[in-house]
Design a protein around this nucleic acid. Structure first.
Length: 268
DNA sequence: CGGGGCTCCTGTGCGC
DNA sequence: TGCGCACAGGAGCCCC
C-alpha cells in the first residue's frame, strides 16, 4: 500500500495539519515499533517540542521537531489516522496543541517502524537511500549509468531503495507496463531508448497517482474523499483480466519472491 | 554482485 | 459451509 505516492499524499496532509504545532502528549501502546531508543526516552524527547516541518523521502515520513527528527516507515500495512478516538491496532498516539484530533500510527501486523535521530541522513536507513524518484537528483544520466551495467532483473533494480527511493511492487509493475518492458528483463539488456521510456514512465505514474490522491482512501481516515488510484492500475492485481491496451490476459509470475504482473504482448 | 530464503506479524481470500 | 494454507503493497539479514 504505502509507496511513494501514498506517502506523499499522507505527508502533505500531515504538514498542513501539524506544521508549527507543539506536541502536547505522546502515548505508546506498542513499544516494539520504536527503534533505537526506549519508550520512556522516546516520549521524553518529543513531548513539548514544536513541529518545524514535515517532509518525505522515498517511503519515509520525517517530522523535524526542533533539534530532532522523528522518522516513520509504514512498511506493508502501516496506516496513519487523524481521529478524535483511538482506532483499532493503534501503536502510538500523538496529541498536538490546539487540535482535537490526534495522530494515530496503526498497523495490525505491527511491522511499522518509528525512530528518532539528530541526523537521519547519517544515522538511519536514510543514509543508504538513493535519490527520491520525484527529486531533481534522480536524473536520467544517473538512472542509465546504473542500468547499463546491472545484471539484476529490471523490476528488482527499480525497487531497490538504495538505487531509487519510493518505488514498490505496485508502481514497479505499472511503470514497466507504461514503458512496454517485461519485468524479468536483465537491466543491462535495455537499450538507452527503453531506459528513457522507463525513466519517464516512473516519473509519470508516480505523479499521476499523487494527482489522483494515490491509493490511500480506505487507509487514511480524516473524513475527506480523495479518490482511489487503485481503480487506475493497468496491470497490478489484474491476473487473467484483459490488457487495457491489447486485450490479452494479464499474466502473473513470481520475481524475487514478489507477485509480478505484466502483459505478455505489450511488454517486450 | 545477485538472488533466495527467512524474519518481524496477522488478516484475507482462495481452493479443496 | 468450513477449514487450512498461501499470500500480502517492505526491508534487513544471512547465506550460497
Amino acid at each position: 500500500m504505502p509507496e511513494l505516492p501514498e506517502v506523499e499524499v499522507i505527508t502533505r496532509e500531515l504538514r498542513s495539519m501539524f506544521k508549527g504545532k507543539r506536541i502536547k502528549e505522546v502515548l505508546v501502546y506498542a513499544e516494539r515499533v520504536i527503534r533505537g531508543v526506549s519508550k520512556d526516552e522516546f516520549v521524553k524527547e518529543l513531548t513539548g517540542k514544536r513541529v518545524i516541518e514535515v517532509i518525505r523521502k522515498g517511503k519515509a515520513i520525517l517530522f523535524n521537531v526542533e533539534d530532532l527528527w522523528l522518522i516513520i516507515h509504514l512498511k506493508i500495512n502501516g496506516q496513519i489516522y487523524i481521529s478524535e478516538s483511538k482506532p483499532p491496532w493503534s501503536m502510538i498516539k500523538f496529541r498536538f496543541e490546539g487540535e482535537k484530533r490526534c495522530l494515530y500510527l496503526c498497523d495490525f501486523r505491527g511491522l511499522v517502524e518509528i525512530r528518532l535521530s539528530k541526523d537521519p541522513y547519517k544515522e538511519t536507513f536514510l543514509a543508504k537511500m538513493g535519490p527520491d524518484a520525484l527529486s531533481e537528483e534522480f536524473t536520467f544520466e544517473y538512472f542509465y549509468s546504473k542500468i547499463k551495467d546491472s545484471r539484476s532483473k529490471i523490476k528488482s533494480l527499480i525497487m531497490d531503495q538504495g538505487f531509487i527511493a519510493g518505488i514498490g511492487n505496485i508502481y514497479a509493475a505499472e511503470s514497466l507496463f507504461r514503458a512496454k518492458i517485461r519485468p524479468d528483463r536483465i537491466a543491462k539488456s535495455l537499450s538507452e531508448e527503453e531506459a528513457k521510456k522507463l525513466y519517464v514512465a516512473i516519473k509519470d505514474v508516480l505523479q499521476d497517482s499523487i494527482c489522483y490522491g494515490a491509493a490511500v482512501k480506505k487507509y487514511f481516515v480524516d473524513g475527506k474523499d480523495r479518490g482511489d488510484f487503485s481503480d487506475k492500475f493497468l496491470v497490478y492485481n489484474r491476473e487473467g483480466q484483459p490488457c487495457r491496451i491489447c486485450g490479452e490476459k494479464i499474466v502473473k509470475i513470481t520475481l524475487s519472491g514478489r507477485g509480478t504482473y505484466f502483459c505478455p504482448v505489450c511488454q517486450v
